[in-house]
């Protein structure tokens, strides 16, 4: 894993309660701005590779809209069936009002 941060989006694009998914190189990344801060995770569900980005975020957890798996945004851990494997989590920071993610 490299330690380089990449500009992801302007902070204004992800207000608290909002989220955004985009590709960094070939990796789909989702950034969620929650009451507990910013989190960056894989935008693809570990269960059957379905897109997570239309999922509901509540209490720092995201629920896959396709089959209902749920993941902890802080750790990527799977919390509900049908998922049994975690999703990737990435370091995230804000520099000059830009959200930056480190893959």
């Amino acid at each position: 894993m490299s330690s380089e941060f990449t500009r992801f989006c302007p902070l204004a694009d992800v207000p608290v309660g909002g989220k955004k998914a985009a590709k960094i190189n070939d990796t789909w990344v989702m950034v969620c701005n929650t009451n507990d801060g910013l989190f960056a995770v894989s935008a693809i569900c570990s269960h059957q590779d379905k897109p997570l980005f239309n999922g509901r975020v509540r209490n720092c957890k995201v629920t896959c809209p396709v089959h209902g798996a749920r993941f902890d945004l802080k750790t990527g851990e799977p919390l509900d069936l049908p998922a049994t494997k975690p999703i990737a989590t990435y370091e995230v920071r804000v520099v000059d009002d830009w959200v930056e993610v480190c893959l």
Binding site: T63, P65, V66, G68, R70, D80, L81, P82
Partner: peptide, 13 residues
Amino acid sequence: RASNTEGCASEFT
């Protein structure tokens, strides 16, 4: 959907 779960869906697959 698995028991003891909640979430949001646009359809149930």
